[in-house]
């Protein structure tokens, strides 16, 4: 099928799809009028019951903590999946060994080298701030972890691919990532051991508004932070190793 015919066929079907979806939207609550009973209740009780200000965090790590366990393992599995996909040709690729320092490293301007290096500490601090105060202000383990992961990406921009792959050991980050995932499950099992319910909030709730408050919410958030930050670093390292090898293979 040529490009043009494909476009015509698609546009025709897209108009039908769009019209059907709009017809379906007529059955949705009108914009700005939806009000769920469950969420109305959560807004009333979560600060009193769990001593947190950020209700979505309470939903993620407490009321629906079991769903977040699944979400966390989606991330964990996909990092494992990326490692698995790349390991399929490792036997062939590893003959090249560590990627050599290629032209890109030497051509980097001072701005690209120094600007991210200076930013690293600030981005890392912002990530940790968001990760540690997820129960009080916007943020949480996922967001903070992703930002902390980009601080590590900044280190790569600063030092270049060669030095970065040599110093950042994939195995270390792999292990820390698994540890984060394990901590989440272990807290859940510990709660089951003590109270009989998986992921029940078993820690002292602390004072509302304190840095460490919300009971297990804080610790689950920290576990997710470690897992996401290290998972992103593992992904970065794996992709960098692959591109290093690809460029070598082409030369």
């Amino acid at each position: 099928m040529s490009h043009r015919i494909r476009a015509i066929v698609y546009v025709a079907s897209a108009i039908v799809t769009f019209a059907t979806l709009m017809y379906a939207a007529m059955g949705l609550p009108k914009f700005g009028t939806f009000s769920g009973a469950y969420s109305a209740m959560l807004l009333q009780i979560s600060t009193l019951e769990r001593h947190v200000y950020n209700v979505p965090t309470a939903v993620n790590f407490d009321y629906r903590g079991f769903d977040t366990l699944g979400e966390e393992f989606i991330f964990f599995t996909s990092v494992a999946g990326v490692l698995f996909i790349f390991s399929a040709v490792r036997g062939k690729a590893e003959k090249h060994g560590e990627p050599m320092e290629h032209e890109g490293d030497r051509r980097q301007s001072g701005a690209i080298r120094w600007f991210p290096t200076g930013l690293t500490a600030f981005i890392a601090a912002l990530g940790m701030d968001l990760g540690a105060h997820g129960q009080l202000t916007p943020g949480g383990g996922f967001q903070g972890g992703a930002i902390f992961g980009s601080a590590i990406a900044c280190i790569y921009l600063g030092v270049g691919i060669h030095a970065f792959i040599r110093t950042a050991k994939k195995e270390t980050f792999d292990m820390l990532e698994a540890l984060g995932a394990f901590a989440f499950g272990a807290l859940g099992v510990a709660a089951m051991w003590i109270t009989g319910a998986f992921l029940r909030n078993i820690m002292p709730l602390g004072q509302t508004g304190a840095t460490v408050s919300g009971g297990t919410i804080y610790f689950l958030s920290c576990a997710v932070f470690v897992e996401i930050a290290c998972g992103f670093t593992v992904l970065l390292l794996v992709f960098l190793k692959q591109t290093g090898q690809t460029q070598e293979g082409e030369q």
Binding site: V82, F142, L235
Partner: peptide, 23 residues
């Protein structure tokens, strides 16, 4: 708050799907 929590889940899943597809 529930829809916000769901959107967060959605974004995390989106990032992982992108990583897998790029690999």
């Amino acid at each position: 708050p529930i829809l916000h929590a769901l959107t967060l889940t959605d974004i995390v899943v989106g990032a992982t799907v992108t990583a897998l597809l790029l690999a």
